[in-house]
């Protein structure tokens, strides 16, 4: 592999966007090519500067209120009056026609859809809970970057002790913990941050003995990954890209019991 071939792929490799085969190729090339590996380091350097936080321009206070007022002030859409005369019978006819169509389609197709699996339902609940947590004042019950403050806080609130690990060195900052309610039971939620992205890690005891490998899923732009380890169920959810969320989980797994 020559630099000419690898150069355009370097960007994709850096962003974690290449398929496995090309990923391996670029990796091998970086091992032996000084120029490309210097360029790769340059990309990393640039990213760490960009990620320092000062560039993300959050919405100023008051904008949320303004947006909400605008939405709530919006009257339900009114049909223009010129449509109401001759158009009405036609409209009813088309409504009737589409009802027939819907009935046909439903009758034909519906039985083929299998019901949602329990994991899918739970994933949906997890994403909802994550979204709720992002609304003002919902995120944290115990704000602390200290694992030894967060862990004991759960005493007496849940009937298990969630493992709380420090991932500061890997670039994921512990922001705090929260008591949440999922699948009909109270669970522990640990919140980590990477740049402007928050990760909710939900933890509760697993009824199963066996460890399970990771399963992932994405919904509404959020990535959800879950696994079972040492009789604990873990669900991580974030809008962070899959590569970095993967890094988070790898780092986490190393320290978990």
């Amino acid at each position: 592999m020559s630099c000419k071939e690898e150069q355009p792929l370097l960007e994709g490799y850096f962003d974690g966007e290449l398929d496995l085969v090309r990923n391996v190729e670029v990796e091998a090339h970086l091992q032996e090519c000084g120029a490309c590996s210097a360029e790769y380091q340059g990309l990393q350097e640039l990213r760490s500067v960009l990620g320092s936080g000062s560039l993300y321009l959050k919405a100023p206070a008051g904008l949320q209120r303004r947006v909400q007022d605008a939405i709530r002030g919006e009257a339900p859409t009114v049909r223009p009056s010129w449509l109401s005369g001759w158009w009405t019978p036609l409209r009813w006819a088309s409504v009737a026609a589409s009802l027939v169509l819907v009935a046909l389609v439903t009758w034909n197709v519906a039985p083929r859809f299998s019901p949602r699996s329990p994991d899918e339902t739970l994933a949906r609940e997890i994403v909802d809970s994550h979204v709720r947590s992002l609304m003002p004042n919902h995120l944290i019950d115990v704000p602390s970057s200290d694992q030894h403050t967060v862990k004991p806080w759960f005493n007496g609130k849940v009937d298990f002790s969630p493992p709380v690990v420090d991932l500061q060195d890997q670039g994921f900052h512990l922001v705090g913990g929260r008591l949440d309610y999922l699948g009909g039971k109270p669970v522990a939620a640990l919140i980590y941050q990477r740049r402007q992205h928050l990760i909710n890690l939900f933890v509760w005891p697993s009824p199963e003995d066996a460890n399970s490998t990771q399963a992932s899923n994405s919904q509404q732009g959020y990535h959800v990954i879950h696994w079972v380890k040492s009789k604990m169920t873990y669900w991580a959810v974030s809008d962070l890209n899959t590569k970095e969320l993967g890094d988070f989980i790898t780092a986490l797994q190393k320290q978990l019991p």
């Binding site: 993300y56 321009l57 959050k58 919405a59 100023p60 904008l63 949320q64 303004r66 947006v67 909400q68 605008a70 979204v131 709720r132 992002l134 609304m135 402007q196 509404q220």
Partner: peptide
């Protein structure tokens, strides 16, 4: 419930595209 959590993302994009705080807020709204 679905879209307000993305207010910061919306503002950040608008702010960088317009390079102006006031216009960005109007455009987000």
């Amino acid at each position: 419930q679905m879209f307000l959590p993305h207010l910061d993302a919306a503002h950040n994009l608008a702010r960088w595209l317009t390079r102006n705080g006031h216009d960005a807020e109007d455009l987000v709204q």
